[in-house]
Write a protein that binds this DNA or RNA. Structure first.
Lengths: 109, 109
DNA sequence: TTCGTCCATTCGGATAGCCGAATATATCCA
DNA sequence: TGGATATATTCGGCTATCCGAATGGACGAA
């Protein structure tokens, strides 16, 4: 396989990897996997201040991973890329296997 | 779906997401997808100083995502989780579709 | 044992990302 | 219009992470 250009990997990192590079954002993505939800509901469900939720949503929205739809005075967010949940589920499965294979993985972290 | 505990998501983030949270590390993982390689070869292939490569490899090794095997005076690294490449390929596909669907995704980043 | 090679680690400075608090914007209703 | 609700943005400070340079440690050959 040829080396993938660093430009493409930078883009992959910026758009996809950085998006899941924060636990709270992963939590938001999983919450939206159950269906669209507005900002206030997300803030309450995740027990997180509303500006924090809005900032994370703005980042995900700029990357095209979630969609926003205004509904009166509130705004509902939904996943625009459900495959992202598949990716996260696969990573969770890998995580389980890695932890099982080497239960001392995190001793140095 | 119930909320995934924040503890598990923290672990997922620390072990998996953070591992791919740096373009150079993604490049290393793809290089190792073609077969095991030692540190010097990686440094040359990726045109990167050896200490930088070693630091990234140490992080991946601590998380159980690559394996190290000493061979005389050099050390060969290989993927211990080839599924990680599948995950990255899926993210690249999602990236392509997202960019196609919304070619101005990155205008605000 | 000593040197040369390969790899790992440490240190300091710089940068990027996150959060809380405060503030701004937008929509609806009276 | 004016006020109330819902969401977005900005600002300052903090922490985490990266890199380059220098150093340290391990192995093999002579």
């Amino acid at each position: 396989m040829p080396i993938i250009p660093l430009d493409e990997l930078d883009l992959l990192h910026t758009v996809m990897c950085q998006a899941v590079g924060e636990p709270k954002r992963i939590q938001i993505l999983y919450a939206l996997a159950d269906g669209e939800m507005n900002v206030g509901a997300l803030a309450e469900l995740l027990a997180t201040p509303q500006p924090t939720i809005s900032r994370h949503l703005a980042l995900l929205r700029q990357r095209g991973l979630v969609k926003a739809q205004r509904d009166g005075t509130s705004i509902s967010y939904s996943l625009s890329e459900p495959r992202l949940i598949t990716v996260l589920d696969t990573m969770r499965q890998i995580l389980r296997d890695v932890l099982e294979a080497q239960s001392s993985v995190l001793e140095e972290c």
